[in-house]
Design a binder for these strands. Structure first.
Length: 414
RNA sequence: GUGGCUAUGGUGAAGCGGUUAACACUUACGACUGUGACUCGUACAUACGUGGGUUCAAAUCCCACUAGCCACCCCA
């Protein structure tokens, strides 16, 4: 038995990587348009970073991290998400000293030890963006609008935006208490998982998909009714800006987050097309995170997009690049000639392919067709001698005589 | 961590106890000794995830293992 990849770790083969590049390039373009710069952070961090940011009691930290002890006896962890590293770097390099308002994006692999299934892998990829230093709801709205714009430009308008507010450390405890009181009375109607959640994370019960639980929790107190004045104003501001830019969204007061650092605005881009993995992108505000990690009291907001899930939504769409020209040759001498011609054309930006081995003309033409070349040309003794050749437009077979010179060939192809 | 389903070539698959392991795609070569797409021909699994067992006979039945998928949990 030959060696295979690790469970949940996937190879991205050419057919798929074309699609990935399309997503990545579109994301970079949209982010840069919005004034974001890329930050590249390591894929491994001290374990402590994730414990402090994501939260000790979360599932991610409790049972899903790839944590090791390295040769220097340090506990290190393959990052399960990106925000913690970005904020660690923001603090470590004192980026806030230059300008507390930073707009950063990142992309790369993340690692979570979960049972793989559709749209969920142990090594998966995220593209994320963060804005620090802005309290105003305007920042929330810009982040959301950018996210929506990105999906539009990728060509996906199916995922819909859901927003919520989780309040802040001032108002959340009271909400939690009233929710617990409400649930306590209906404990017997909840599923087993929810009864467990009642003690571990009562907010999660709102997110349960079991019909009985949905029924039992009808009329449960909503976070949105328990926001303090400031949080309420903030959320109203966000909604106002989304309305004023005609960004479609719906409010889901039952939306919960799996990471502890979120405050106020939270959101998800959800789809019905990926089975149980409905979130394609998600994020929120994390006003306490930077100070919690030892930095100054600077707020932040951001999101992460699940790369694999976006790729899945794009389906089998073909994003491969076709050659502009395929050069077929008759003999060894012509092949040398063609190689020099190809070299010149490549240097001037024409996408050229040729046959490397001495295959029959028939098989060379077949290859030209298979590669989807726009034009083909056959170079034999006559062509080398005359310096001219018949260029064939593959889609209709029309042939045009053109000199075998870079400039003439380029012109002909326009 | 829990459950369900599936495992035949590069791919999609037929096969249901005795077959040269069908068919299609892909690939290679040819029909056409200087021209692709359509057509036609030829070649391409000593082999049916691995290990046991039942049987005169197993890809086909049984068991175990392994892997993959999907779902739960959780999440992007």
């Amino acid at each position: 038995m030959s060696i295979t990849a690790i469970k949940g770790f996937n190879d991205i083969l050419p057919a798929e990587s074309d699609r990935w590049q399309y997503i990545e390039q579109t994301a970079r373009r949209v982010f840069e348009l919005n004034g974001f710069s890329e930050i590249r952070v390591p894929i491994m961090e001290k374990t402590e970073l994730f414990r402090r940011s994501i939260g000790d009691a979360t599932d991610i930290v409790e049972k899903e991290m790839y944590t090791f002890t390295d040769k220097g006896e340090n506990s290190v962890t393959l990052r399960p998400e990106g925000t913690a590293s970005v904020m660690r770097a923001f603090i470590e390099h004192k980026l806030y000293a230059q300008d507390p308002v930073a707009k950063l994006y990142y992309l790369g692999p993340m690692f979570r030890y979960e049972r793989p299934q559709k749209g969920r892998y142990r090594q998966f990829h995220q593209i994320g963006a963060e804005i620090t230093g802005v309290n105003a709801p305007l920042a929330d709205a810009q982040v959301l609008n950018m996210l929506v714009q990105l999906f539009r430009e990728i060509g996906l308008d199916e995922p819909s935006l859901q927003i919520n507010s989780l309040g802040c450390p001032d108002c959340r405890p009271a909400y939690r208490a009233s929710l617990v009181a409400f649930m306590e009375e209906r404990l017997d109607r909840l599923c087993e998982d929810c009864r467990r959640r009642f003690t571990t994370n009562p907010l999660r019960i709102l997110d349960c998909k079991v019909p009985g639980c949905i029924e039992a929790t009808v009329g449960a107190p909503s976070v949105l009714d328990h926001l303090c004045g400031d949080c309420d104003d903030h959320f109203a501001g966000v909604k106002g800006y989304l309305d004023s830019t005609a960004t479609p969204y719906s409010i889901n007061h039952r939306m919960v987050r799996g990471l502890d650092y979120y405050t106020r605005t939270t959101f998800e881009l959800v789809t019905g097309l990926l089975g149980s993995q409905s979130a394609v992108a998600a994020g929120g505000r994390y006003d306490g995170l930077i100070s919690q990690l030892g930095g100054p009291a600077i707020p932040g907001i951001g999101f992460a997009i699940g790369f694999e899930r976006v790729a899945l939504l794009l389906g089998d769409k073909d994003f491969s690049r076709q050659p502009d020209l395929f050069i077929a040759t008759m003999g060894v001498g012509e092949r040398d000639f063609a190689f020099r011609l190809m070299h010149d054309l490549l240097r001037s930006g024409v996408r050229v392919e040729m046959e490397y081995e001495g295959k029959s003309l028939k098989s060379q033409m077949r290859r030209a067709d298979k590669l989807g070349a726009r034009y083909s040309v056959v170079i034999g003794e006559n062509e080398v001698a005359s310096g001219k050749a018949a260029f064939k437009r593959m889609k209709d077979g029309e042939q045009i005589e053109v000199p075998l010179k870079c400039e003439d060939i380029k012109k002909m192809m326009e």
